[in-house]
Nucleic acid binder design. Structure first.
Ligand SMILES: [Zn+2]
Ligand SMILES: [Zn+2]
Ligand SMILES: [Zn+2]
Ligand SMILES: [Zn+2]
Lengths: 128, 128
DNA sequence: TGCATTTTTGACAATGATTGTCGTCTTAGT
DNA sequence: ACTAAGACGACAATCATTGTCAAAAATGCA
């Protein structure tokens, strides 16, 4: 069992900021946004906080080409439909996919099965 | 139209090595394997060659936590079932999933749809 | 085969997101 | 208020990957 996290101004600031955002943001972006909002938080702390929240299941992580993006999501298992243009994100759910992944893995003798699934596209706003 | 790639010893060596492997390897691993095989190739060249092959659709790329892994795969669209222990890899196919992803994205007004899907688990050999 | 042209190579430096360090500051509890 | 366990943040370090650029190799042609 791990010691519970302590309530600090920095962690509140990060959580509050993310609660007000709707799409994925990088640690560096969050660091800047916090500074602009007057709730300055050290970059190291931003990274540690985001990771802790992600580990705790409070945040979803989207790993792009060269950086990790974070987003406050619903707590249940789901996947993301992300716009390549503006990062607009929709949560999507597919029970069929979940079962398919588990079944095909089991058929090959694999256990402790997990999966990653992301859908990308261009949203209506990013067209015309 | 782009100029066709030239046939070099280095590119042949990389392609030949990958043809004889069955699971995902990193650029650095491939670089070492080539050196051991006597077909030494510069690290920069390994990176460039792998990227070129991946861009051409000759290789599949698996982006892990901290590095990119490459593997020679079949040419048709498919996904991977990867062992977390030994990286043993099985190609899997799921027409239902493909259609589901396209449909759910279209329902949200997204176009130019693509997706990523990987399944992870522990294979029989990595248990006991 | 010799030569011009274009591409490729590879040793090395640079990049940049992320992680590590560690003295100082805060929190939680008594 | 006092203390011990955590947490913070300025800064340095890491490390896969990318950039540089002069030298080497491939292609095409005479
Ligand atoms: Zn968009
Ligand atoms: Zn799922
Ligand atoms: Zn295995
Ligand atoms: Zn697919």
């Amino acid at each position: 069992m791990s010691t519970p996290l302590r309530a600090t101004r920095q962690r509140h600031a990060v959580a509050a900021l993310l609660a007000g955002l709707d799409d994925f943001r990088s640690a560096q972006q969050i660091h800047h946004l916090l500074r602009e909002a007057g709730e300055s938080v050290g970059l190291s702390t931003v990274y540690r906080t985001l990771q802790a929240m992600a580990d705790a299941g409070d945040l979803d992580v989207l790993k792009t080409e060269d950086e990790s993006l974070y987003r406050k999501c619903s707590t249940s298992h789901h996947h993301h439909l992300v716009c390549r243009g503006c990062n607009r994100t929709e949560e999507v759910d597919g029970p069929t996919v979940e079962r398919w992944a588990d079944r095909v893995a089991a058929e090959h003798g694999f256990t402790e099965i997990s999966h990653t699934l992301e859908i990308f596209g261009t949203c209506t706003g990013c067209r015309g």
